[in-house]
Design a protein around this nucleic acid. Sequence first.
DNA 1: GTGAAAGCGCTAACAC
DNA 2: GTGTTAGCGCTTTCAC
Lengths: 359, 359
Amino acid sequence: MTVTTLDEEPAVPATIRDVARASGVHISTVSRTFSAPHLVNPETRVRVLACAEDLGYRPNRAARALITGRTHNIGLIVADIANPFFPPLIKAAEGQARHRDYHVFVADTNEDQAAEEELVHALAKQVDGVLLCSPRMSNSLIEQVSREVPVVVINRQVAGLPCVMMDVGQGARLAIEHLLGLGHRRIALLGGPRGSWTNREIRRAAVAAARAGGAELTVLGPNHPTETGGGAVADQVRRSGVTAVLAYNDLMAIGLIEGLDALGLRVPQDVSVVGVDDIALSRLTRPKLTTVATPTAAAGRTAVDMLLQHDSDAPRGARGRGASAGDHRTTAQVMLQTELVVRDSTGPVPPPGRDGTGA
Amino acid sequence: MTVTTLDEEPAVPATIRDVARASGVHISTVSRTFSAPHLVNPETRVRVLACAEDLGYRPNRAARALITGRTHNIGLIVADIANPFFPPLIKAAEGQARHRDYHVFVADTNEDQAAEEELVHALAKQVDGVLLCSPRMSNSLIEQVSREVPVVVINRQVAGLPCVMMDVGQGARLAIEHLLGLGHRRIALLGGPRGSWTNREIRRAAVAAARAGGAELTVLGPNHPTETGGGAVADQVRRSGVTAVLAYNDLMAIGLIEGLDALGLRVPQDVSVVGVDDIALSRLTRPKLTTVATPTAAAGRTAVDMLLQHDSDAPRGARGRGASAGDHRTTAQVMLQTELVVRDSTGPVPPPGRDGTGA
DNA sequence: GTGAAAGCGCTAACAC
DNA sequence: GTGTTAGCGCTTTCAC
């Protein structure tokens, strides 16, 4: 009358108890076989392992996490996975995490602040830490989140929290100086999304560099940081009469070039355009894009390292209560260098009066 | 001598017990307040909710999953997140999942079959189902995985498993017919990665269409499905003397165009090139790419729907043992239509002897 | 080296 | 409508 388990494929995953029963030991011995093999008699170990293999047993990481407090997962929240800026960062983070036996869960917020907040809370208990990439949240919200789960912020500076930044300010300065060197004196800055730290940094540096060079800088924006967003301002750029544009990112720069093209303006003959990011795409368009290269892969790796630096520490939550998310970890702030890559989308300032905009 | 919890920010996340203590009810009442609010007295409910809010309590989804058997997460495994083909699919899947109160965890396998297998196992217990996108695994491995966790396969046909496919075969046929119509009779097919179902479908259809049109089809490959992979065969294409190429995907097509350009061959004047996927990028290159558009967003949405169609069913594993991963769900197989988008990378066959390759 | 027992945070019968 | 109890799959003292 009892239902016996036949030697078939398991309809339901085997648990630690099934393995214990099959190998004739207590469940704690099975547990040890997987989490502390050296504590178990070699003979017992091979027997247990054989039975486990046989039953297709795999430790349930979620159950383990409930007691150890460590899931061996890390969360990575990005604004827009379709923006080619992010994938290299994601891949680098995944690679680095894998080396340390961690898995990365990626979540996309669609550039939406509310989604961002909701996601980070949903992830909080399922991961040992979260990489917040280019967050659009307010600083205070980020701080609040960081009390719930360890956080490393990428592409933003938040006091008291570990941050990995790329020096886009320096990059923007180099870009402006490059344009000044080509003779440009009327320059536009294509602003990015509201709430973006990167955007603020670029603007601050660009404004300063332009002023220092005696150039006039027009700020256009905020804009959606996509090709569409860049294309949408082409007409505005034309009317503004500038001879050069620094865009918030490559996608916008490329969209702008397309848009200008449709209006009959050539890049770089009529207008010079500089992007930021150096996404793979920027080498594939015609003209190839002059841009500020950001070390995205390095940022991903560094962020993972910073998050996992206390890997061997006491667990958070559960048994090992005490270690608050943010405290006692060195809250290092790392600034990675950027560089200007000059390609074909920038050129000498056109002779005055060359098109209808006057000079 | 006892450490009392002060009214400070929680150093450790509040549990259901903390809320119970604070609101003077039993933990099961707190539980009900969150998972079945209608079963609890409105007055009690508001009190509990207030305390919960106060303590910053959030139900631990992992602990809940342990008992309900449902995590409200779904896993999405892709070959290469940096391939622009995937992000639209990912975003669509995420959007659809969110509507049903599910979260999507994305994992990247780096086109590596072993990583793919490892990842799917690691994910299995943390999600209610897995979307296997363009898997490189063998069919038998996929079937094995599907006994561990519900699976929906995207971009591949596996007997007995729910699949969402895009009819790239039809697309390839249209592409070849388009080239035939332009007078091309010597055509190359740039093969994609080994183990790709899409690759096999394209080849099968292209070979058939070419034969039917009396054209000669040279198959080149397998190749890595990236720009680099496409650029690497440019010389081979030139030497083969073909006048048109159908590439496994847009990335390879774009890489090939770059490579041909470097060899002094113009597209489409000297060689016509067709891609597959219609990634956003294909509209941004010069020449704009003629390509087979695949409904990636629809595929993502459909796959989520298929995975979640038994949403309200008994839980898998845990208490509700019995429902095996793959059984009793309608294993529908959906084939989504594709279409040919003609842009600027294809043109009439060049006059014979136009370049050194002869005719 | 191994077993017994407690318990992680939570839900789900079942009483009352 | 609420409390009691058992237990999800696992780890971790503590004995022996």
